[in-house]
Design a protein around this nucleic acid. Structure first.
Lengths: 256, 256
DNA sequence: CATCAAATAATGTCTATACATAAACGCGAA
DNA sequence: TTCGCGTTTATGTATAGACATTATTTGATG
């Protein structure tokens, strides 16, 4: 089979050369035809195979490298990357959106609100010094008047001073923060816990029922922003995500 | 402040024009200086500001768009994107790796193994027809002889026929599959459940203890590969992930 | 044989240009 | 006013060439 024939019979019928090359290479990697460690053709080889300029194949290979599918080294060429550790991507739903989608009425209620000084345990979790002033908010999220989540949040007033004067009467703290302070780093922990009696009462479930706890800490350019601990009641809720390792962009929301 | 002055005083001292422009724009978006909806300079404006060619600024903006930081529309220009729904990325650890890191001995035991025909519930979850032949494996993962996870897995023999003859005596099914069959799509569900007596016995925990359940279904180019339901005992285990929305590539493993 | 230096090969970055395409804009007609 | 159509503008894709950077390979030399 000649080089030009190989180019023409490429499985992809994409409109653009870039997409055609990319689809072909991705298909070979994804199908296992090119296992991890397999050498990817050099740029000049792909140029010849597809009859295009070097810039075009360079863009393909650079993008694949940025997405972690291949690794590139000068002089040595490119090889298929080792599969990264398994990675689960979960979409954390906005309660109001989720409720609207399910045809339910969403409402939230702020149960407690105080400005507190950070205790040693919180200091360790956040990396802030003990005694830092934090806005502490306890929020209950209701869907059709049924508790959907119990949220305990600390907001670092050093990073977000305007939170101190915010009444949070239209948007819940999480939504307000997301809009106001973009984050650059987030850390998530997911755990399962048995509800104690206080939690059970607030979530209207039985004491001992299994609850899903999502802890999220976010930073903005190194500065701590907020810590949220969201408890989902029993087996009423779960987190769902769908993920493609080679997706060029974010996964469409319809997948949620 | 003149345009050239603005270019020279850019906060970033990166070596390459591309990085300098990108760092500057990302910093403005991340800091909130350019909120969602804010117009990003046109390509020709950035060309003038940084004194470079259009290809260079085009690469910057295209990459930012691919990463979801901005949205671009012909004729209208680019604007800072609305923050996407919160997204939690969790690294699913390889048990052997995790054990090694913690200085523990990892071992797994296959409790049950059978070739079964898919039942209606499974058919709905996987999208395969009822009666499809699946290899069913029940595996217990032990760390220092203590149960660390209980795994129920179905492997589609139509996609992975060689699994039928695999003894799984060196690598557990998940690791074997990851190496053998790269996946293109994965769906994850995370839930909390109370352990029933059978599960409690196998995981050596108390009946009713909260367990974290991770269900993962993977496909390869539309063909179903495997479904795994991994139950982590009580509060012994949790899932951790760290994530940057603007990261050019995958998050380093050291963050785990 | 071991070692250092020069040639070489592949990727990394950048330029200047060209044409295609989508969408907003503005103008004129109904 | 509103609708339709051509114009304008910004992005999308692609090219050919240039020089920089980094490893590897090779060859000369002790």
């Amino acid at each position: 089979m000649s080089a030009t024939a190989a180019a023409k019979q490429g499985s992809s019928s994409a409109k653009h050369v870039y997409q055609r090359i990319r689809d072909d290479i991705e298909a070979r990697i994804m199908s296992g035809e090119w296992p991890p460690g397999h050498r990817v053709p050099f740029e000049h080889e792909l140029m010849a195979e597809y009859g295009c300029s070097r810039m075009t194949v360079n863009k393909v290979l650079s993008t694949l490298a940025a997405n972690g599918l291949i690794t590139r080294r000068r002089r040595a060429g490119s090889v298929v990357a080792e599969p990264s550790t398994q990675r689960a991507v979960l979409e954390i739903q906005d309660f109001a959106l989720e409720a609207a989608r399910a045809g339910m009425v969403y409402r939230f209620k702020i149960l407690e609100r105080a400005i507190e000084k950070l205790d040693p345990a919180g200091a360790q979790r956040t990396g802030l010094p003990v005694g830092t002033e934090m806005l502490s908010l306890t929020t209950l999220h209701l869907m059709d008047e049924l508790p959907g989540a119990y949220e305990q949040r600390l907001i670092h007033l050093g990073t977000v001073p305007e939170a101190a004067d915010e009444p949070f009467d239209t948007d819940p703290p999480g939504t307000w923060l997301l809009r106001r302070v973009p984050w650059t780093d987030a850390q998530h922990v997911v755990r399962a816990v048995n509800a104690d009696s206080a939690l059970a009462r607030r979530l209207q479930i039985q004491t001992g029922a299994a609850c899903l706890v999502l802890e999220r800490r976010t930073w903005q350019a190194g500065a701590f922003v907020t810590e949220a601990r969201i408890t989902y009641p029993g087996e009423r809720h779960h987190l769902v995500g769908r993920f493609s390792p080679a997706a060029p962009g974010p996964v469409p929301a319809s997948f949620i």
